[in-house]
Design a protein around this nucleic acid. Structure first.
Length: 482
DNA sequence: TTAGAACGCGCG
DNA sequence: AAAGCGCGCGTTCTAA
């Protein structure tokens, strides 16, 4: 027995899955009930800064409208202020970029799904960045608008006051100070893969990747006297791919605690570690991209597009001469030769999709894939990608569920029973967050890391169900991700 | 006037 | 021809 009667490995097994879905429920209930504290003033300050930035960018963007066209644009603008156009409207943006400024003239520009307009998505605009200064402004404006509308303005208004004092009427706890807390809803039976979803508000997509985004995340704070403990699995999907598909070379890399991206580059190009590090853009970045995206069923063209966008976007440099579609095709071929079991794994999932109409992950959760019987190649291809991805994403989601349940058991029997404050706040796919009495954060961090890393080791026999070591790393913070 | 589609984008 | 998995949400646009 692994935990509470959960068996591994498996085939479709509803009883097993039902048990696994129920075990983490007490912890999820607490996450929703206690909420995650936010610093409303911090959010307001960011919101004000973004408003200023947006107004400036909007003026700069509108200044590119030629005098002769100005009236035409003003007539089409749907805003009641005196601005010449609405940058949030892709139609008006298309008019400016492609019909007025003729950016990308003569080049093949990708159209939107419905085919009615040229796509103004970030990946497309990145390619046009060096053609005209307005593109950069639009992208900056978009980032500001997203952060302001979705986060800076909305989150403070959704926060609920937990007043200082005993027996809080919201959560029942004793609070030493007023806090404003966000209560999300966690949906445990929503996704096709077994992951959780979060809504009203969604706390699983709080920004972090950009500098401005990180500032938003820093608005999530620990209650005074407490710290936040965030523990996340490292490279969890790549590890699960190695495990599920029995990928010899990948398993070895993880057993030796190596860096899979560097090793992939060394193997694919037949070079040394020093050579990989000497030209990371050429060797390590593509390897990292494929290691990450192969579980999504990325194609050579997808890889090519991504690397081109990275080149223009992040590095701000033209596409290197070696970066061609053919190069990407060749690299992908080499990748599958090195990790040849992945090819076999994908074929097995395809077979199961056709034969049984479904695929399943290692604990027995199923996903139906009727798409593979479609007459449309595009639909079939999408179904096959989903079939290949689900057991990987699924198993990764089962790990964190087991961990959440096990940590909760520890929290209740060993921590709170000693009068130490420790509550679960949130889980974000491969990460769990707790709020802990500040003097106990360090101790509990070590224990939680251990529980998460050993979640596939049998508690009675010590047998490891997993052929790949699993690692979890924790951080202690006053503010989320800082 | 309004519900839903389309588009774009935040996260893992 | 299309070309990357899983979500939720804000704004604009469209059809009724």
């Amino acid at each position: 027995m692994l935990y509470g009667g959960i068996k591994l490995p498996g085939c479709p097994d509803f009883e097993n899955v039902r048990k696994l879905d129920l075990l983490p429920m007490p912890a999820l209930m607490e996450m929703m009930k206690y909420g995650f504290a936010i610093d409303r003033d911090h959010m307001h300050v960011i919101g004000d800064k973004l408003a200023v930035e947006m107004a400036e960018l909007k003026l700069e963007i509108c200044s590119y409208i030629p005098e002769s066209k100005l009236e035409e644009f003003i007539a089409k603008s749907n805003l009641d202020d005196d601005s010449a156009m609405n940058v949030d409207s892709n139609q008006q943006l298309c008019e400016l970029l492609f019909n007025t400024l003729n950016i990308g003239h003569g080049r093949e520009l990708k159209r939107t799904k419905s085919g009615t307009h040229i796509s103004t998505g970030r990946r497309q605009l990145e390619k046009l960045r060096i053609d005209h200064p307005v593109i950069g402004k639009v992208l900056n404006y978009r980032e500001c608008a997203k952060l302001k509308n979705t986060y800076a303005d909305n989150l403070p208004s959704m926060a609920v006051l937990h007043p200082a004092g005993r027996n809080c009427n919201i959560c029942g706890l004793h609070h030493h100070a007023d806090t404003y807390r966000i209560h999300t809803q966690i949906l445990s039976t929503r996704t096709a893969t077994g992951r959780y979803a979060s809504k009203d508000p969604n706390l699983q997509n709080i920004p972090i990747r950009s500098l401005l985004g990180a500032a938003i995340r820093a608005g999530f704070v620990a209650t005074p006297g407490c710290v936040l403990l965030s523990v996340d699995y490292s490279q969890i999907e790549l590890r699960m791919l190695a495990f599920v598909a029995c990928v010899k070379k990948l398993i070895e890399v993880f057993l030796h605690n190596g860096d899979p991206h560097t090793v992939t580059a060394m193997e694919a190009f037949g070079i040394t570690e020093a050579q990989v590090n000497a030209d990371k853009i050429r060797y390590r970045n593509p390897s990292k991209n494929v290691n990450f995206a192969v579980v999504f069923g990325e194609t050579a063209l997808g890889l090519f597009e991504q690397l081109v966008a990275d080149s223009y976007g992040k590095a701000g440099i033209p596409v290197p001469e070696w970066l061609t579609l053919e190069w990407c095709e060749e690299f992908l071929r080499k990748w599958f030769d090195i990790y040849t079991e992945v090819r076999e794994y994908m074929e097995l999932q395809a077979y199961r999709s056709y034969r049984y109409g479904m695929v399943w992950d290692m604990v027995g959760r199923i996903r139906l894939v009727p798409e593979v019987k479609s007459v449309h190649k595009r639909i079939v291809a999408a179904g096959l990608r989903q079939a290949g991805n689900m057991p990987i994403q699924g198993l990764a989601s089962e790990l964190i569920k087991l961990a959440i349940a096990e940590i909760q058991e520890f929290v209740i029997t060993e921590v709170r029973s000693q009068g130490i404050h420790c509550i679960p706040l949130l889980t974000v796919h491969d990460e769990v967050i707790y709020e802990i009495d500040e003097s106990w954060g360090g101790v509990i961090k070590e224990i939680v890391e251990g529980i998460m890393g050993n979640v596939l080791i049998d508690k009675d026999t010590g047998e490891d169900y997993c052929t790949v070591p699993i690692k979890a790393e924790g951080k202690i913070m006053q503010r989320w991700e800082k």
